[in-house]
């Protein structure tokens, strides 16, 4: 019998990449390194109640001991983190995740002060998936009904004259099959389990110095749950968090992305690449999103240029890591 049993709550199914390749192995590792003194029960698919945006608060308040959730589900809550959501920011999940974790450790203490942060990480940069036609250039998105993953991308898509829709992930397949939406922006890691590639067979990927966009995830632990552990067990948790954990999770998401993309290839889907001059055109067209972000953040009293700079520098640092 374990001395400490913790509840880990998340929103995805138990067969998801996140649980199978990240959360479960992580929990097993913690259990093994604590010689069985820590045991972690994983509750998938919001089994303990609430909606995904509430997961962070459930951890903060100690309803659960740990949770893993999408940061963008609570817009306005982690303003500094949104630097990583800007268009054309991310590199691979590994690089961006490690950069983001270091950014969180140095810049985001205030935003994350109510929890014990295990790690912050991102997914592999997302691509576009279209139901009806190939998206080869900027203008192809004009008037298309596009499902946006978050507020930042909604702003970006609006600039591209797309008709932006937001709907919960589970509603997406039927909305796509019915033509309620034409295009969705997602990493292949989400495309595969939701079978989006069978509904939207025209993929558009971005090849340049940066990926198109990403989302960030927060894996956190309740402060009291952490503090009640004796020092040797705290060390077990510490050994399994921070930048190294971000690197591990990034690897998991990068590796899964490759396999997931292959499903779409095997399905005989078409792949378009935005590169070269067209890539620059997308990047230029979307700079107003970043400019607007800087303006808004400055209005809210942040030093936006410095934060953006820091985020970029950290990504470069881990690119050459």
């Amino acid at each position: 019998e374990a001395e400490y049993t913790f509840k880990l709550h998340h929103m995805l199914p138990p067969v998801s990449n996140a649980q199978v390749n990240f959360l479960q192995p992580w929990a097993d590792k913690v259990e093994a390194e604590s010689n069985g003194r820590i045991h972690i029960d994983i509750y998938p698919a919001m089994q303990l109640g609430g909606k995904p945006p509430q997961l962070f608060d459930q951890t903060r308040k100690g309803i659960v001991d740990m949770s893993w959730t999408v940061g963008g589900y609570t817009p306005g809550r982690f303003p500094k983190a949104t630097a990583f959501e800007l268009p054309f920011m991310p590199l691979s999940a590994r690089i961006t995740s490690m950069a983001m974790q270091e950014y969180a450790e140095t810049e985001m203490q205030d935003e994350l002060k109510d929890v014990h942060l295990l790690t912050l990480h991102t997914h592999f940069p997302g691509s576009l998936h279209s139901r009806t036609k190939d998206i080869k250039k900027l203008e192809d998105l004009d008037g298309m009904k596009v499902r946006s993953p978050n507020k930042m991308m909604a702003d970006a898509l609006n600039i591209l004259k797309a008709n932006t829709v937001f709907m919960p992930v589970p509603s997406m397949p039927s909305a796509l099959s019915k033509g309620v939406i034409d295009v969705t922006a997602l990493p292949f890691e989400v495309v595969k389990p939701m079978k989006i590639h069978e509904l939207a067979p025209h993929h558009t990927e971005f090849k340049g110095d940066r990926g198109f966009y990403t989302q960030f995830f927060i894996f956190s632990m309740n402060k009291k749950s952490y503090n009640k552990l004796p020092d040797d067990l705290k060390k077990v948790i510490d050994d399994n968090s921070g930048v190294p954990l971000a690197g591990f999770v990034g690897d998991v998401f990068d590796a899964y992305e490759i396999g997931a993309r292959k499903d779409a290839v095997d399905n005989g889907n078409t792949f378009n690449t935005i590169e070269g001059a067209e890539y620059d055109r997308w990047k230029d067209t979307l700079t107003p999103v970043t400019e607007q972000w800087i303006e808004d953040m400055n209005d809210d009293g942040y030093d936006a240029e410095r934060l953006l700079d820091k985020a970029k520098t950290l990504i470069e640092k881990y690119e050459n890591f």
Binding site: P53, P75, G76, R77, S148, K151
Partner: peptide, 14 residues
Amino acid sequence: FEAKEYLEQSMLLA
């Protein structure tokens, strides 16, 4: 009150 303090809001329309 907590929801207000922590700026809980919807995705697109806030």
